[in-house]
C-alpha cells in the first residue's frame, strides 16, 4: 500500500482534542527529496499534523510512517530536524552556548561538534554573531539561529512550522536559499505557511482547511485544475467546493 519512494506516509489520521476534531482523515504521501508545503489558514490543523510527524504528538486514530517506520520513535526523531513556530532559544545564553547544548543532545562531540556549529552558522549567515547573547539578537536573527539549531545534526528530513513568519522579504529570500541548498543535498523539507506567495516555492503543496486536506499537487497543477491565476484563487475554489 505504501509508495516505495515516499519517506512520509500519513494514513487515515484523525486527531481529536476533547470534542474538537482537529484532523479529519488525512492521507498523504511525501516523497524523498521534495519540498512539500502545507498551506492553510491558522487553525486548519497544519501545526498539529507536523507535530505528529516530528514525534511530539500521536494521532487519535490512523498511522504516520516515516522512512517506513511507524512514528513516534526516538530513533526516528534523531533523523528529523524540527523547528517550531516559537524560536525556542535560551535568551540568557550566547548563540554558541545554545548550539553547544543542542548539539550535545544529538550526541555530537568535540571536533565534529565545532565543525557543524561553524557550518550551520555560515549557512544562516550568523558566523559573526556566534558569541553574542541571544537576548541581543534581532527577531530575524533569532529565527535563523533557531533554524541553525534544527540543522545541527544533519537531519535527513526537516520539518518547519512557519519558518518565515514575521520576517522581511530580504531575509525570507535568504532563508529560502538555505532551504534550496539543503534540498539539493537531498534533505526532504516539509514546511507550513499561510503566505500564499511562499507556496509557489514548494515542489508540491497540500491545501488544508478545517482539519481536512482539500487538495494536493504542484502549484501549477492546482492552478490549472481550478482555472485560477494564483494559488489564493485555487484555494478559494477548493475551499468553496467542500463547504
Amino acid at each position: 500500500m505504501r509508495n516505495q519512494n515516499s519517506c512520509i506516509s500519513i494514513q487515515h489520521v484523525f486527531k481529536q482534542f476533547g470534542k474538537h476534531e482537529v484532523l479529519k482523515d488525512i492521507n498523504l504521501e511525501i516523497e524523498e527529496g521534495e519540498i512539500f508545503g502545507l498551506l492553510g489558514p491558522s487553525g486548519a490543523g497544519k501545526s498539529t499534523l507536523i507535530k505528529e510527524l516530528a514525534g511530539l504528538d500521536v494521532p487519535t486514530s490512523g498511522e504516520n510512517y516515516i522512512f517506513g517506520e511507524r512514528m513516534p520513535t526516538l530513533k526516528l526523531m534523531e533523523r528529523i530536524g524540527y523547528m517550531a513556530q516559537a524560536d525556542a532559544l535560551y535568551e540568557e545564553l550566547s548563540a554558541n552556548e545554545n548550539l553547544q547544548f543542542f548539539a550535545s543532545l544529538y550526541g555530537l562531540k568535540g571536533k565534529k561538534k565545532k565543525e557543524r556549529i561553524n557550518e550551520v552558522m555560515q549557512l544562516v549567515d550568523l558566523s559573526d554573531h556566534l558569541n553574542k547573547p541571544v537576548s541581543n539578537y534581532s527577531g530575524g536573527m533569532k529565527r535563523r539561529l533557531s533554524l541553525a539549531i534544527a540543522l545541527l545534526h544533519e537531519p535527513e528530513m526537516l520539518i518547519l512550522d512557519e519558518p518565515t513568519v514575521g520576517i522581511d522579504p530580504v531575509l525570507r529570500k535568504s532563508i529560502w536559499d538555505a532551504f534550496y541548498d539543503l534540498n539539493r543535498k537531498g534533505t526532504t523539507i516539509i514546511v507550513t505557511t499561510h503566505v500564499m506567495d511562499e507556496a509557489e516555492k514548494c515542489d508540491r503543496l497540500g491545501l488544508m482547511r478545517d482539519g481536512e486536506l482539500i487538495a494536493v499537487g504542484t502549484a501549477e497543477a492546482l492552478r490549472n485544475e481550478t482555472n485560477s491565476d494564483t494559488i489564493e484563487q485555487a484555494f478559494l475554489v477548493y475551499g468553496g467546493a467542500t463547504s
Binding site: A88, L89, Y90, F102, L105
Partner: peptide, 14 residues
C-alpha cells in the same frame, strides 16, 4: 512558554 521544552522533546532526549 518559550517553546524550548517542545524543542527538547523533539530531540531524542528521554
Amino acid at each position: 512558554t518559550t517553546g524550548t521544552l517542545e524543542r527538547l522533546l523533539s530531540t531524542p532526549l528521554r
